[in-house]
Amino acid sequence: MFDLILSQMINGFVWGWILALIAIGLTLIFGQLEIVNVAHGALYTIGAVGAYYCSTYLGHWGWAVPLSPLFLALLGLIIYLTTIRFSLGKEVIVTVIITYGLLFILEQGTLLIYGGVPRMIPNPIPYSIPFIGGRYPVYRIFCAAFSAAVIVALMVFLKKTRYGLWIRATRQDYETALNMGIPVQRVYAFVFCLGSALAGLGGVLAAPISSVTFNMGNNIIIDAFIVVIMAGFGSIIGTVVASLIIAMIIGVSAAFVNPVLAKVIGMAVMAAVLFVRPEGLFGEV
């Protein structure tokens, strides 16, 4: 019993890092562009599908790690230029409807291209290490470590580079940033591409763990929304912490109740947090 809880917690912890990648993408897009990206899950799915294609046609899943996010960044750019940028500054419904429409398009497109059949990818790191009585797959440890590294790199990028400064400045005060000569439009586009790429990377990492289906994004988007709301928009570290907490709670609950009820528990936790602190655990008011 204790073993079960422990292994669920560890799995939850690992999953939490992957979820953090996706949630950070979501919160970046919202923090910067005030857009609730309902299509975020579809971007994650496309990343995973890319991983499938790389694994099958290029021989190894590893190709997907650079290629999928790159593809998603490109896709994000196209999406931004054709639709998102016309919605900036308009009310919530405009952006939500646009991303909702994008969700329809992306998910159906994925269905048409990839098909409705769930497929598995062979484990890219088929080793396991001895762990508390059993063995734990190295691949999962790699996922957590890799995600953490990417997140750290992201934070360094935001804090230390000039572009990162531009991003933070634009978020803080659009007008002043504009007046200081920062290419605000490009910053917006960049953030959207970055968020998309992060979602895609999450998909790549998740692909060997679960199976790759055209609508796998719908499951993850619930968790991502829960995390982002609970953490509050704005803090990357906060999103990571919330991700880990939620993933572990859902993971452990799923051992005892129906996995869907586990999600409901996750949602209940989020609602409870919001009651006490409406701006989220780490949100900036």
Binding site: T83, S87, I93, I98, G101, F104, I105, Q108, L112
Partner: peptide, 20 residues
């Protein structure tokens, strides 16, 4: 029917931007 969701999505986007 296969591309109907794509049409719906596209229609949503066009309408909300051009004729909200």
């Amino acid at each position: 029917i296969n591309i109907y969701p794509i049409l719906v999505g596209g229609l949503l986007i066009i309408i909300i931007l051009l004729a909200p």
